[in-house]
């Protein structure tokens, strides 16, 4: 194992983030605050409780997932696409580094940033509403699994994209709708029976539900189903990324 290479990539990706640390902190704090003003206060005043939880508190896990999913994908995809765009990728491709080391470096760094982001939002939310976490370890597990899975997914987009537009297409056209319809701001049980069924095809529903369970012991789907699903996505994304790196797909002509 080329641990020096893993450290070099990880450190490179983290320092890229640290250069704009102010922005990295300010952006999620501001957007979370806005969500609480709009959803928590304006809507929450009419919709007092969901699943027996105050609405403001109810949306906290969903908000964190929303940010973590979006940020993981955009950070990891940009982090790998940019060196391809500038041409500096030649160095990684000619280095004695295998697929696993590449993934640990890039995906590890992106996931680290996402986990930190999750905690930052949790902290911000605490200023607006009471947040209670019933199962902290389970919460951490979900947070880490989601961060890793979607960083892997972003990494795949970073290999697949051959322009900045393509980098945006999947997040805007697929991911954002799925996260908004995944129960970030409502319980799936509030939907008509037909749309409840349709929602079950949305993988994000399982993430948010499991994550919310770790806070309030209330979720739309069974906890073990949630865990199984996230593990399934993780493995699928890992296999795809591994295949891409090993075959040199879009990287080695």
């Amino acid at each position: 194992m080329n641990t020096y290479a893993i450290a070099a990539i990880y450190y490179f990706e983290m320092s890229r983030w640290l250069r704009t640390i102010g922005q990295s902190i300010a952006a999620p704090v501001i957007s979370t605050s806005l969500y609480f003003v709009v959803f928590g206060s304006a809507i929450g005043s009419r919709m007092t409780q969901v699943d027996g939880i105050a609405y403001g508190s109810f949306i906290v896990p969903g908000l964190i997932m929303l940010a973590v999913v979006t940020e993981s994908v955009s950070n990891a995809s940009f982090g790998f696409y940019f060196p391809r765009f500038t041409g500096t990728i030649y160095e990684l491709l000619s280095a004695p580094v295998d697929y696993a080391e590449t993934l640990i470096g890039y995906v590890g760094a992106a996931a680290t940033k996402s986990v930190l982001l999750g905690f930052l939002i949790l902290l911000t939310a605490n200023f607006f509403v009471p947040v209670h976490i019933q199962h902290p370890l389970l919460m951490l597990l979900f947070l880490v699994l989601t961060s890793v899975t979607f960083s892997l997914f972003g990494f795949i987009i970073g290999i697949w994209a051959d322009g900045f537009e393509k980098l945006q297409i999947i997040p805007t056209l697929i991911l954002t709708p799925l996260t908004f319809l995944g129960g970030s701001f409502y319980s799936i049980k509030m939907l008509p029976a037909f749309w409840q069924k349709v929602s079950m095809a949305n993988p994000i529903v399982y993430l948010i539900s499991g994550f919310r369970y770790s806070f309030y012991e209330a979720g739309d789907v069974n906890l073990s189903v949630s865990l199984l699903m996230i593990c399934f996505f993780l493995i699928a994304a890992f296999c795809a990324a591994r295949w891409m790196l090993k075959s040199g797909y879009k990287l080695k002509n």
Binding site: A5, A8, T86, T88, A95, P96
Partner: peptide
């Protein structure tokens, strides 16, 4: 390898980028 095209990490310092390469090659 010194490739034909100039490709560098614009925002990195000379010191960091050279040390990065050394690490990447496992030293």
């Amino acid at each position: 390898l010194v490739p034909q095209e100039l490709a560098t990490d614009a925002f990195e310092t000379v010191w960091h980028t050279v040390n990065f390469s050394r690490g990447l090659f496992g030293l």
